[in-house]
Nucleic acid binder design. Structure first.
Lengths: 339, 339
DNA sequence: TTGAAAGCGTTACCAT
DNA sequence: ATGGTAACGCTTTCAA
């Protein structure tokens, strides 16, 4: 390995000067010296050892990202834009899957901290109390992304307004004339903003809410639940799924149960993953602006790390918007307004 | 930050002994001393600084994973099992998206190496020549995953047999009675094993191959191409898509073009991402054993890093298998055998 | 403008 | 069995 000392030797100067050249400071270097150093660097193919830099300075230029499950398209899309942005700003991403497990999440926080990560982005899978205490001890800036839980005073919160979004979806269904609207949520252990928004909208419309919870967040368990819902005697005429994966599973389940979407059951979901633009029928959904969310998360975190950003504002809520596609039928479908 | 010296001081011993206790070696420690050290560690909440360890030792316990695009479900699923395995074995994953770009890929290799990654897993998006030279200079073990290109003498190659798999898919279509079978591949810049398998199978059956190339690997461009294919006068009766995402796009395009799958056009793809089990109709495909692939990649790489594995065997090809679902119709559909 | 050297938190060798 | 200490590659202060 070629080190700074090798470069210094070859350039006939000291390691300090090499450092100044590379970092453009903190002190000026004579043009001729700089020249020699640059030449030596090129000739030797020297590249600074980031580990040594991290140990010496306080900065590792690493940020940690903890997601519940990278194979969930929503998180994957988020990870993609975060990685992109981080890379652009000179940071490397370390990745962890928490699998919605508080212990794993905790372990990852510690691991990343032990590696001197400069900051953390958490899409936290766990409920408040378990982690709040520990979160308050995280000695670096961190962002709680997409979930409005685990609020810690030292965290920055970034999410779409799930209550508002879910209400939008529910109201869309109501405006379409549906009276019997069920909501399909993730596991009960997860507190859900979106369930709350659904409940509010239903209440406001004087409708009776029905809440279902899948065993997990994956395709199979949401599919299983969807089949069950579609086969009940009192089958709802519309279902609001709190995440796209569930909505997509409903589409599949409906086909298997011989119920037509949107004619016999309308489906609307939440997230707007790419996949939902290509399902049959195309899935109406509440769009989380994934790019904006990820970009903002990365930029704000790095701004925090580099002290370039206002620390006083601890939360940002983005308003999601409705995307009407095919899975709810046309807004003008009068045949639905019977109840 | 609490350091080893703090622990030593509190335990009334030297940092060396603390080291021996933590690492269970390389030298023995008296039971009573060990006791004191352990107590001090617990009381202080000491955790070793991984950066310092990495600098001092040669091992960082970090592995780098470079994928073309983490938002592509196949790579995301792979990343998930790799991450899982790595974590289990005590390694942390750093992630990079190459976006099929050789320069980016190169940059990531360097970045990860500068961070003293102990090993690399590359799902290389680029063609051989560009990177081969550089690959031969990678000073750590690395695995070329899923793509049979960029073969470098110091790399371990792990992939499914794309030629065989593609031939399976094509032959399945042929056995179903199809004569006019098109293949839909990724961008021309990527050499494709799978195209080769298709070509071979067609030739062997005495059928005329037709190759299409999408502009990119994403949903939109494969969808666009699919529409184009389905609207040609000489519409094929079957399409083999070299990756699931393309197959799924064909399903969508067919619905939009008013052609029925599998009745008017049969579709088969390659990868077996989770999504393909839930499409309408369900997608027949050639299954890459994702779990096996990812697990093997992680385990072999770490075996290589820790010198626990035979270095002589430089390649492993896994035979994929056919998964018949709905998008090609029943194997007994005699109505198709007209040509 | 530049060189020497201290120190970041570890590990492991050389002593005792 | 244990302590002292050099070294990993870097940054930055102190001196010149």
């Amino acid at each position: 390995m070629v080190t700074r000392a090798d470069v210094a030797r070859r350039a006939g100067t000291s390691t300090a000067v090499v450092s100044y050249v590379i970092n453009d400071g903190p002190r000026p270097v004579a043009a001729s010296t700089r020249e020699r150093v640059l030449k030596a660097i090129a000739e030797l193919g020297y590249r600074p050892n980031r580990v040594a830099q991290a140990l010496r300075g306080q900065r590792s230029r690493v940020i940690g990202l903890i997601v519940p499950d990278i194979s969930n398209p929503f998180y994957a899309e988020l990870a993609r834009v975060i990685e992109n942005r981080a890379d652009l700003l000179g940071y490397t991403l370390v990745l962890g899957n928490s699998e919605q497990d508080a212990q794993r999440e905790l372990r990852y926080v510690r691991t990343f901290l032990d590696r001197q990560a400069d900051g953390l982005i958490l899409i936290s899978g766990s409920s408040s109390d378990e982690l709040t205490t520990l979160f308050s001890e995280i000695p670096v800036p961190f962002i709680l992304l997409d979930r409005r839980i685990n609020y810690a005073p030292n965290a920055f919160l970034l999410a779409t307004d799930g209550v508002a979004g879910a209400a939008m979806a529910t109201n869309h269904l109501i405006e379409l004339g549906h009276r019997s609207i069920a909501a399909m949520c993730g596991p009960t252990r997860m507190p859900s903003e979106r369930a709350k928004g659904y409940l509010q909208a239903m209440k406001q419309a004087g409708l009776a809410p029905v809440l279902y919870h899948s065993a997990d967040f994956d395709r199979q368990s949401t599919y299983d639940l969807a089949c069950q819902i579609l086969r009940t005697a009192a089958r709802p005429s519309a279902i609001f799924a709190t995440f796209d994966l569930a909505g997509i599973s409903i589409l599949r389940a409906a086909a298997d149960c011989g119920v037509s979407v949107p004619r016999e059951v309308a489906v609307i979901a939440y997230d707007d993953v790419q996949e939902s633009r290509f399902t049959i029928p195309r899935l109406s959904t509440v769009a989380q602006p994934t790019s904006e969310l990820g970009q903002l998360a990365a930029e704000h975190l790095i701004g925090l790390i580099e002290n370039k950003v206002d620390r006083t504002f601890g939360m940002k809520l983005i308003t999601p918007h409705l995307i009407v596609r095919e899975s709810c039928g046309a807004a003008s479908a009068g045949s639905l307004s019977q109840g």
